[in-house]
């Protein structure tokens, strides 16, 4: 195994081509998901069931503030793991890794497309679970829109780290075990920042916006850090 990555003069052309590949892989993944419905419905079902579980686990019928934020965020993170587990299954079992490596495609295109697909799944998941959550536990729907914004930021970070871990796990023997094991500690800062940002938005006396700025900043920093790490290392995950 000699040499890192090539830096030939055609690298620019390859970048342009990578955009085509990115779009092709993303469209393929969304088409397969629409056809087979193997990730998103399971995630939504899992989310709603988890809410019911929390209702009895906490023995509360109304939630607000920090508790509401914690229940919502924990549910979304755990549901995301279901999709992250499955992200590369088709590539591994049906030869997608080989097919993509046989084409002049940058590994980053595959990683980016998978992250984008994961973000789409998470947004759909939240579009389903957020109203259910409000219906089950909240008195007021006023904080939901800004909470959705916080979740969107969290989704980007989830996708950035999730794709890295999923790609590692897909080529290992212990796929289902490795994803939660490695991913959960990596997601603790997302949990901290998103839960703290959502806490005042879900306060019992109506949403407050004081002090959420710094948490949004932490989320943005997390997102950017792991997007950068992903760009730097993704090529190495696609090699043999």
């Amino acid at each position: 195994m000699s040499g890192g990555r090539d830096r030939g003069p055609d690298r620019g052309r390859r970048r342009g081509h990578s955009l085509h590949a990115f779009r092709a892989i993303l469209a393929k993944d969304l088409r397969v998901e629409l056809r087979t419905l193997q990730s998103v419905p399971a995630m939504a079902l899992f989310g709603v069931t988890t809410f019911v579980l929390f209702r009895y686990g906490l023995d509360r019928t109304k939630l607000s503030g920090g508790l509401a934020a914690g229940v919502l965020l924990a549910t979304v993170l755990f549901a995301a793991i279901l999709a992250i587990n499955r992200l590369f299954v088709a590539e591994r079992d049906e030869g997608g890794f080989d097919a993509i490596r046989l084409a002049p495609v940058d590994g980053t295109a595959l990683g980016g497309a998978k992250a984008a697909a994961l973000i789409v799944y998470l947004v759909v998941l939240e579009a389903i679970t957020l109203p259910v959550f409000a219906l089950f536990f909240l008195d007021s729907w006023a904080g939901l829109a800004p909470v959705a914004g916080v979740l969107a930021l969290a989704d980007v970070g989830l996708a950035a780290t999730g794709v890295l871990v999923s790609a590692i796990a897909a080529n290992s023997r212990a796929r289902d075990l490795l994803v939660p094991l490695v991913l959960l500690p990596l997601l603790i800062p997302v949990m901290i920042a998103a839960a703290n940002a959502a806490e005042p938005l879900l306060a019992a006396q109506g949403p407050a916006y004081g002090g959420i700025g710094k948490w949004v900043g932490v989320l943005a920093l997390y997102d950017m850090t792991f997007i950068a790490v992903g760009f730097a290392v993704y090529d190495f995950l696609l090699e043999d």
């Binding site: 780290t161 590692i168 080529n171 990596l186 790490v229 730097a232 290392v233 190495f236 995950l237």
Partner: peptide
């Protein structure tokens, strides 16, 4: 290679 990717990610 994957262990290195992990070490870099965890370092960040």
């Amino acid at each position: 290679r994957y262990a290195s990717v992990f070490a870099i990610t965890a370092g960040a």
